[in-house]
Amino acid sequence: MPPTRRRPTDDQLLDAARVVFAASGYRRASMEAIAREANSTKPTLYAHFGSKEELFGRLFRREADIMEAALLPVYADLPGRPLREMLEVALGAAVRYGLAHPEGARVVAIAINGRGPEPTLGRALLERLIDAIAGVVEETLRREGRDPGPLGRMIAAMIWGAAIEATRVAHTMGVATPELVEWQIIYLLGGLEAALAHALDGGRPPLAD
């Protein structure tokens, strides 16, 4: 008598879905491929999640929770730091999260970039992460006697753009994390100096060494 196949848990199926979605994207991933990765069957997958859209949504929410648990405590500790140090800590945390959770980071990026089943799925997460950084940036600029205007959100969005690109480069080129973070900081600060110089009516920007 052949051995009975054990019924997989939701988390085991989500782990398999994470591998397939990360490798193929949402649209090209198939329920058949996910069932195969889980050593399970399509009927079992549908019994647990109902549809590919529901499966991706459940996976995204799980991975978003993991991301926020890793990043929000770091962002809560940013107030009071000099602006450059604050940027380095915030960006470094995002990059290290991506390097530690490459498949989960890819799933989150799919949703944030509007390439999942619902274009707005990742928007609320991105807004929370940007808000967490933007408030600290604005506070820091005010402490330095500057009017932040829209710069807080712009800087926070630039941090996330740089972090996503840094994570992608790290996985394609195998660049060491400290070196990668420093490269991205140099890139980010260059963009910030130009933005600040324009926004603050010229003069030497406050981030210049």
Rank of each mutant, 00 (worst) to 15 (best):
I34D: 00
G122M: 05
E32L: 03
L83R: 11
G25L: 12
P119Y: 06
R123I: 08
A109I: 13
P79A: 02
P3R: 01
H48M: 15
E103P: 02
E53P: 02
A64T: 07
D15F: 15
E37L: 05
G191D: 01
P73H: 13
Q184T: 12
L78V: 14
E54Q: 15
Q184I: 00
G57Y: 01
E53N: 10
A134T: 01
V169N: 13
I34S: 00
S24F: 00
R106Q: 02
Y46T: 04
F49H: 12
A162H: 12
R18M: 10
M31T: 08
E118M: 09
M31G: 07
P3M: 15
T9I: 13
L151M: 13
L141M: 09
I110F: 02
E165F: 06
M154L: 10
A157K: 08
P73C: 14
R7Q: 13
G50C: 04
A194S: 14
A162W: 00
E88K: 09
A76Y: 13
D77M: 11
A33I: 00
I164H: 03
S51V: 03
I164F: 10
V20A: 08
G104M: 08
L55Y: 06
L180Y: 10
A176N: 05
R153C: 00
A194D: 05
I155Y: 09
A162E: 04
M1Q: 11
P82L: 10
L121C: 11
P8N: 09
T120F: 03
A23I: 00
A195C: 00
A94E: 14
M31I: 09
M67S: 04
E144F: 10
